[in-house]
Simulated assay, not measured.
Amino acid sequence: MRYAISSNVYTRFSLLESIERIHHCGYSALEILADFPHVSPLDVTYHEAKQVSRLLEQRGMSVSNINANTAVCVFPLAQNSGETIFEPSLCNRKEEVRLQRIRYTERCIDLAVEWGASCVSITSGKCLAGNHPDQAYEFLVDSISRILQYAEKRNIRIGMEYEPGLLIENANEAQRVLETFDCNSFGINLDIGHAEVLGEPLAETIQRFNEKITNIHLEDIRGHKHYHLIPGEGDIHFEAVLEALQSIGYDRYITFEIYPYSDDPDGAAKRALAHMMNYNYTH
């Protein structure tokens, strides 16, 4: 297992500044937030993308995942939806909104190729007014089908992340989506904290998804409240999590997602890594 950290805890800094700071905190990998203020995938220029590539190479940094879970950078198209985080979504009932999110995700796939990431994470979005879950699911499946056609040609895996409150919000619903496609290019971006919030047995959930896990999001959770804590500050038994990952031969990244700590991202990054290095499951 290799540790990375999501740049979404560094939202007070540019992406280039975030890469430098994460490097100085002792990391050799990061997840890149494909959203404001780090990258606006539909607007990023060739020169800007190459700047990131050069800095990653200079610092010997790898990219664990392109985080395409939120798209505030393209939100104006869906500004009347009342949802400001996950829209425009892949399950929105308006086709023009879904197509905007599909184009955004395709551009994230291009950036994954450019920056050497093997996977891009996505979410389903919420069921907004007038969009029954059954209908929303049909829209989601159609959107994912289009994204996978694009991703497969570029050898990038797409990882669905489930989250409480979304259309796809638990392991059973994520399993249903996986079985709908059943292809190597589609898997799960497994957020351990989300599983903990939902009361899902963590080791069993890891073993359930097994080789379908494209990336791990890791944070601590206390009292099943959906608030991302630094590992060691909540209730998660991380040794059991690491043992489960080792049992399935997981050799991809474990990415810390501790965005509530934007006031002191360096301190949070160092504390997260220091806590997890206490366990003997890293290389």
Rank of each mutant, 00 (worst) to 15 (best):
E138K: 13
S124Y: 08
N155L: 10
R101M: 12
I144V: 14
S145N: 11
A129D: 14
A174M: 02
G159A: 01
Q135H: 13
L111F: 15
R98D: 13
E106R: 12
I122R: 02
S124E: 01
E179I: 05
L111Q: 08
S118Q: 14
A174N: 05
I102Y: 12
S121A: 05
I109L: 10
I156P: 00
G165Q: 06
T105W: 14
E163F: 08
Q100M: 11
E169D: 06
M160G: 00
N189V: 03
A151R: 15
C108D: 03
V141Y: 11
G165M: 09
R157L: 00
P133T: 03
S121V: 01
I102A: 07
S185H: 05
L140G: 07
W115T: 04
D134K: 06
I188R: 01
A129Y: 14
G159S: 04
E106H: 15
F139D: 00
E106K: 11
L140T: 09
C119E: 09
N155M: 06
R176Y: 05
P133K: 07
D134C: 07
N184E: 06
Y104D: 11
R176G: 02
N189L: 01
T123F: 12
N155E: 04
R101D: 03
A112Y: 15
R103D: 15
A112R: 15
T123W: 09
R154Q: 15
I158R: 00
N155A: 07
E114G: 14
Y150T: 10
V141N: 12
G187K: 07
Y150G: 09
Y150H: 13
H132I: 14
H132L: 15
S143Q: 10
Q149P: 15
G159E: 01
E169K: 10
Y104E: 11
N155R: 07
Q175Y: 08
R103F: 11
A117P: 05
M160S: 02
